[in-house]
Amino acid sequence: MSEAATAISGKARWEHFPHAADVGLRGFGETMAEAFEQAALALTAVVTTADVRPAVLVDIDCEAPDVELLFVEWLNAVIYEMAVRKMLFSRFAVTIDGTCLHGTLWGEPVDVARHAPACEPKGATYTALKVAKDESSMWSAACIVDV
């Protein structure tokens, strides 16, 4: 598994960071929304590195008292859709208005033979939770996901 993945804005990327029992996700982007999208790609990469076709579209909305809690809500909403629909997602479009988020997810049902899913995310946590903009105006969004 590589540390970085697909580029969207040029600055957009994601990484996994080590945690003893679980796994850390971090998305980077030019906007907070883009960092959230990248973190969701990192979430899919916890499960599979195989190609996931963006065949089916799912819309989700969430809100929270602040942007860090919103980030956890977002990941948990994606985890919920993965679990209930038994799907994997490979494209994400996020818009954030204050502490309300609208997300569109594109993906396909899990194909065990092709995706060989490694493990199942149980939930996003408040551990190592950080949503921030650095001095070069780059956004990052990170937390530990329980697997």
């Binding site: 929270a64 008292p65 809690l69 956890v72 809500e73 948990n76 985890i79 919920y80 679990a83 209930v84 149980k122 939930g123 996003a124 946590t125 408040y126 329980d146």
Partner: peptide, 17 residues
């Protein structure tokens, strides 16, 4: 399974508040 994960997720948030 998923039921426990979802309860954990929801109450973690409720308890912060």
């Amino acid at each position: 399974r998923g039921l426990g994960h979802q309860i954990g997720t929801e109450f973690l948030k409720e308890m912060v508040i």
